[in-house]
Every structure is written in C-alpha cells, then in structure tokens.
Amino acid sequence: MEKLTGACIIGQSGGPTAVINASAQGVIQTALKADCITRVLGAAHGIKGVLEDKLYDMSQEDPAELDLLQYTPSSALGSCRYKLADPDVDDTDYKRILEIFEKYNVRYFFYNGGNDSMDTCNKISKYMQKVGYECRVMGIPKTIDNDLNGTDHCPGFASAAKYIATSCMEVWHDAHVYDTGMVTVVEIMGRHAGWLAGSAALATWAGCGPDLIYLPEVDFDMDQFINDVVSIYNKTGKCMVAVSEGIHYADGRFVSEAETSATDGFGHAQLGGLAVKLADIIKSKTGAKVRGIELSLLQRCGS
C-alpha cells in the first residue's frame, strides 16, 4: 500500500463512554509523532464538525492535557448522531467532506464509534474511492453493546458491564433486606446484542444477582416468562430478573411498550418502559409486590 503524506482528522460519534477518550488519545498522540502526517485535526461533534469546517488543531494542545484524556470520561471532542445519506441518492454531504479533505490535504480519517459510525466510515471510504481521492479511512471501535463485527471486544463494554453487575448486586441486597415477597425486573441496554444483559450474570456468579436473564438473541415468550418468574417466586419468595431492552417476540416485535415513541438520528427505535410493563404484567398475574428498574444511560456513563 502506497504511503500517503497529509493531514489527519479524528472524530468521535455516538454515545460517550468512560473510556472513549483513551482511544482518541492514542490516535492523536501517535499521529502527532508520525512523519507522514503533517497536521492533526480534531472534528468538533463528529462528522458534523467536518461538514461545518469546525476543526481543532491538536498540535496546539498542551501535551499534559492530552495525557489526561486517558482518564477522562465522555467525548472530549464532542459527539453526534448524524446519518449520512446513501451517496447514490444524495451526495451533498460527501461533496462537502471531499471539499474539506482537499482544503486541508486530509489523507487519514479516523472515526471513533459503534456500528453506525462504522457505517459512516464505509460510506466515506467508498465515495473517496469512487471519485479517486486517496485517503485512508479507519474506524476505531467503541460501543458498550460489544457487537462490532471483526472485534473480540469493544472499549466501553467492560466499564458498562462492571456498572451493570455492581448495580444488580446492590439492587439484590436492597430487595433481600425485607421479609416480604418481592419481584424485581431490571431493564438493561441492548437492542440486538445481549452482552450487557448477560453481564448481569457476573452478579449472580458472586451470589447476589438475577435469577433469570433474557437476551434479544432468543425469542421472548411471555407465558414462559411468567411461569419462570412465578416458579422461582413461589419457592423463595423473591425473584430478580434482568431483561435486555431489545427482547422481542418470535415475529420480531419488541416487547417494549415504548418502541415507537421516538427514533434516534439513525432511525433506530428508542426503546424504554420494558421493566415497568413486565412488572405490571407480573403483578396482575401474581398479586406480588413488583418493581421495575431501568438503569438507563447510566450504564454507558458508569465506570
């Protein structure tokens, strides 16, 4: 592969995590030392910063401040959820990106994010090849869902998994201080991947976690769910359940009652309300004291 000489742009996209800045730090500090990279630019709020020509000259930053990125949570450069259109349908954004790349002689583009960010990388790379502009486009994995193809793990997953496991342990202890029966349903992030919900098993392994865990990779059966909960509750007077927000029926419908309430910038249904819905169903079937807990975005921010 031919060695290219020119500037590079690093951007961050999607939900911030406790460790995403460590990846940015690695790219920035390495790029500043690379003889083939003439300038290192940080995009403000991801690809939107490229489109709006809002770029930071990273060589002007205090090296000591860059060192601190390793221990700084969230997205230091700012993030976004911006979906590029199919270039065959609307190439407006791509022409603008090419204009910016040519303006700064950008030959390396790094984009730190999850599946949607990798989609952005793929689209930009193919467009640059199509128009004959030489540029290396590289995706840097980041997603708490831990579901990027070709990776054995994604930065962000471990910190989220730790938060989920410790939170489940704390909820378990809270439920077991009472001598009355109780069913607890904990809703965990994960639209299509069950790694996060599965991490609740770490709390169970430690002796204080969910009795039942439901993942989106397995079709959900409401009758079987109720039977499983009632069976454990009748035996022990307690039952703790961890459910992925993305559990769905065999026909593909999400169990979450809020599945159509809103969508994000990429058109994904914003799920929520699942724990409360399941808690209400269990209560109506058993009469037991039931509570639904949604860990929400704290899963992503926790470390």
Results as ranks from 00 to 15, higher is better:
74 S>W: 10
215 L>H: 12
136 R>Y: 14
188 I>L: 12
290 V>S: 04
252 G>V: 04
34 A>D: 15
142 K>H: 01
240 M>F: 03
122 N>L: 13
54 K>I: 06
212 L>M: 08
230 V>N: 10
256 S>T: 09
222 M>D: 07
117 S>L: 02
110 F>T: 03
210 P>V: 02
230 V>L: 11
131 V>N: 13
3 K>W: 02
102 E>F: 08
238 K>P: 00
33 K>Q: 15
292 G>W: 05
207 G>H: 06
146 N>S: 03
212 L>E: 07
39 R>S: 12
54 K>E: 14
231 S>F: 10
187 E>C: 00
37 I>A: 04
159 S>C: 09
224 Q>R: 15
67 D>R: 12
253 R>Q: 15
88 D>V: 05
99 E>K: 13
147 D>S: 05
57 D>L: 08
291 R>P: 00
38 T>D: 13
205 W>E: 14
243 V>C: 09
15 G>Q: 12
166 T>L: 11
24 A>V: 14
39 R>C: 13
154 C>A: 05
230 V>I: 15
37 I>H: 06
303 S>D: 13
123 K>M: 07
292 G>H: 07
129 Q>Y: 11
40 V>H: 04
260 T>H: 15
7 A>T: 02
26 G>L: 11
217 E>W: 06
131 V>E: 13
104 Y>P: 00
49 G>R: 07
213 I>F: 08
64 A>D: 14
136 R>S: 12
88 D>E: 15
239 C>N: 08
9 I>Y: 02
97 I>S: 05
215 L>M: 14
294 E>H: 12
194 G>S: 12
259 E>A: 15
